[in-house]
Structures are given as structure tokens and as C-alpha cells.
Design a protein around this nucleic acid. Structure first.
Length: 129
RNA sequence: AAAGUAAUUCGCUCUGUCGCACCGACUUCAUGUCGGUGAGGAAAGUCCGGGCAACAAAGGGUGCUGUACUGUCGAAAGACAGAUAUCCGUGAGGGUAUGGUAACAGGGAAGAAAAAAACCACCUCGUUUCAGGUUCGCCCUGAUCCGGGGAACGGGUGAGAAGGUGGGGUAAAAGCCUACCAGUAUGGUGAGUGAUCAUCAUAGCUGCCUGUCUUACAGGUUGAAAGGUCAUGUAUACCGGUAUAUAAAAACGACCCGUUUGCGCCGGGGGGUAGACCGCUUAGAUAAAUGACAGGGUACCGGUGAAAAUCGGGAACAGAACCCGGCUUACAGAGUUACUUGAUCU
RNA sequence: CGGGGUAUAGCGCAGCCCGGUAGCGCGCUUCGUUCGGGACGAAGAGGUCGUGAGUUCAAAUCUCGCUACCCCGA
């Protein structure tokens, strides 16, 4: 597996897991993005599933929503290495959702900074627990 | 040339790195490698029509909804070409409307009046009173009150006022008569597939809008969250058979006629669950791919400049979710063809 | 993805079907009443009828487009 790939297994798709994530997940934010995550050790395999949300309320046109989702996915894809290394020792399953919370269309640099910070903080909290 | 009108076509591109979805081949315990394909003219709004699917089907009438000039194409929506009326534009052109009219109803405010009369003003006859004249006769003239008659629209309000203008006519008037003009109806001739147009003759026949009404054609309902298969496995909804026959009642789009089903028993069956696959496609996903970053270039835009040039910016509207045909809306800019121009430049 | 609805005064709603005067309640302003306030009484102000076109003599109302908000369907 290539280091920067972002295949089907890494995407959060199940309706059930999303609902439980929203009801029992923990979160912290770095504007304009909020990160929502949950840890479980059911599978006993180090793995991550990620979802991206851009609310229709903030962006009426589908073009803008698609653009922001693509930028967030790219930022995650290029900066996820540290998180994976940290998970190697924990052998736990992690579910993450990124929620975009701004009415402006931010450029790629700002989004990447935000994602960088969020993933760093997530790594720290996981290693501590 | 410039500005414009109509139709039509297009609507960024190159390099590098890292990625995504589907399909195929090879290889595998996992997986990986290679190759191919991967947004639009509107994919949008969901305004119409059709396919497709399920349900309902026994039919008829009334009702309801939509459409309505002519020809051609089309499964239908609709498109193209034309006709008439009207509005906009100098113009090329563009917008809007269009079955039928016999009968009935309505048209606020304003205005005398909204189609039929009345009122005021007009003319005339009789009468009351007054004034003046006088040939002294209720004889003449004028005004006034009341009553009868005449005719029509003079009343300047309104979006709209009883065809328009001139002449005649009359006590006063009026298509009352006449000339010309506009329209309508009927008939003839010619042109056109047709709507219709042109022209001739005849008839004084002459307001507009809306609704009711009426004619022809079309329309069952719900939408891929339709629907099917598998897994999961539960209340008497549903289905089949049988039996009874009294009726309440229910279904058949709103109503009427009409038709069908009906207590019970036996057998099947299933409220639920929220998973997978099919439906699904030469783009074909299902928390939903078609991209991100870096660098360069073009159309084009802005500044400076006489020009060459140079500096800065740099592609609009917008992202498929069952599929087709239309309509509507958004859109930086560019090309092609035909045509127009009073005022602009050479 | 599909279907439906609403927009009128600061707030909540009528009026729209069948075109001609924009109204109701609460609130607001002024005056009266009271020692003062509340309640009460009297008077008054306040609306591009979401927006852009069209039809019409005339549009909140009829027709078409656009915008915003809300609801329903597993």
C-alpha cells in the first residue's frame, strides 16, 4: 500500500457507526474545521475510517461543497502518516468525521494547516489514553 | 470599420508529483501491477411530455383539469414555417394574443348616461303671469310658470360614449339622405395545400371588455425512497379454498347509474428489521469518483504609451444519481453565416 | 431524489377563490383619569403586500420567472 493512498476501506460509510459517532464521540475544533472522533478496539487491527461533512446550510451550490470536500480529503491524505504510526502501537480502531464550519470558501493552505493541527492533537490524546 | 438584428458553433491549454471511481487482463493468503473509460450546454429549476414499474381495472353518463388561427414534422410535450390583430424598434427584426357566438349576466370611482330609459339644455304646441310694441284684435315680440309632443346625444367624465369628415335636409335634429373614407355581412371572380389575401357588386348593416354557456381533442393514481430477490422472523392486514345468504358496510379518482365483495371455518401468510444484491446503463457511484499541489502559456480584462511594447490580473455559469424528448432560468468571452443602419469614422 | 406549502404594519394573522376601499388583535405615540404607576377611556402614527416581468383602463388578488424559509415521503 502506498503511503499517500486513500482507498475505499478508509472511508466511513456505515450509517450505524456515523450515528453512534455523533451520539457518543468526542470532538475538538480548529477553525474552520471541527473534528469528531471515537475509539474502539473491536477489530483488534490498527485502522482508521474517515468521513467529511460540508453542510448544505452554508453552501447552496453543489460545486462549492464538492470543492471543499476534495480539499479536506487531500489535506488528510497527505498528512495522515504520523497518526498511522501512532496507531501501530495501540492496535485500536478509530472513526473520524471532519465537519466544515464556515460560510467562506477557504483555500487549500488554510485547510491543510487546520487539519495538521487537528491530527497532531488527536495523536497526542490517543497516546495519552 | 463601428454599432446592431437573427441563426448557429465553441466555451481554456501544457508539463511534473501525489491521488479517486468503474471495467478488463495477469498475479495473490492478503494484495499488487499493467491497460482502458470517467460531467454539461445547461448535468440546474422540476415547468411539461414519454419510456419503465407497481397498484387499480366492467362499463356508461355528468362533472373536473388542460389545450384551442393555418400547414408540416413528432409518441406526446413541443418545434419550424406562415396568417390576422396589436405593441416596441430608424431598420434588420422582436414581444403578446387567437375555437364558437344564439341567449343571459356584469362593468367600481368619475360622468346626465356604460347600451336602456330618465335628467339638464334644444325645438314646437297650448296655457298662467309680466314687459314692450300696437293698425287697439288675446294682434305681434320677448321673458316666465305649468302641461303635452318632437327628436336625438349637445352635456367633456372616462380605458371605452352609439362609425369619421364635408354637403344637403329640418321647427330643432339624427345614416334621415348623399360623396369619400374605415369596418361588418352576403354573393361573385382570382391567388394560396390552408389560415387568409386582393378585387367587384349589394345591404345604412355599425361600440368595447369579462363571465356564464357551448364545440372539438387529450387526461386512471403513484413515482426508482417505484418495484423485485435473498437474509432476518412478528401483531390476524392480505391471498386461496369452502360454506352461508339476511343486511349493515366496503371498493370501483368527485357525483349518479351500475357492477363486484361480504358472518364463519381450514390452509397459506405476515406488524418488524435497516443489511446485501438486482433495478443501474460504453460515466455509473451509493456518506456518493471525475481531483489536489507546483510551474508555464493563450483568449480576454485593467494601468502607462502615439505605436511597438511593458506592468498587474487571468477564464463565466456551474457538478451526473433510472433513461430519453422539450421548456425555462444562469453564463466571462470567442468564432461563422445572412441581414440592417437616421445620427458615427475612413 | 421526489412531492407540497408560506412570504401583507415591530409581532401574530385576515383580505386573494370571484381584480377597483389594505384591515383585525397585541404592541407604539399623544392626551385624559390617578398623589404616582397599572388598568381604563379618547385620539393618532406606522405597510415598496418577498422580488422582476406580463395581462388589464386598473393587480396584494390573475399568469410566468427568480429568491428566501418551512413541511412531508425509507
Amino acid at each position: 500500500m502506498s503511503r499517500f493512498s486513500f482507498g475505499r476501506e478508509e472511508k466511513l460509510k456505515s450509517r450505524k457507526s456515523i450515528e453512534s459517532l455523533f451520539s457518543s464521540g468526542k470532538s475538538f475544533s480548529s477553525p474552520p474545521i471541527r473534528l469528531l472522533y471515537r475509539e474502539n478496539d473491536i477489530k483488534n487491527i490498527p485502522s482508521v475510517q474517515v468521513g467529511v461533512i460540508v453542510p448544505k446550510r452554508y453552501f447552496k451550490r453543489a460545486v462549492d461543497r464538492n470543492l471543499l470536500k476534495r480539499r479536506i480529503r487531500e489535506a488528510y491524505r497527505t498528512t495522515k502518516q504520523d497518526l498511522f504510526q501512532a496507531l501501530e502501537s495501540k492496535r485500536s480502531h478509530l472513526e473520524i468525521v471532519f465537519i466544515y464550519q464556515s460560510t467562506e470558501i477557504k483555500n487549500s493552505q488554510e485547510i491543510r494547516q487546520s487539519i495538521n493541527f487537528l491530527l497532531y492533537k488527536l495523536k497526542e490524546t490517543i497516546l495519552q489514553s
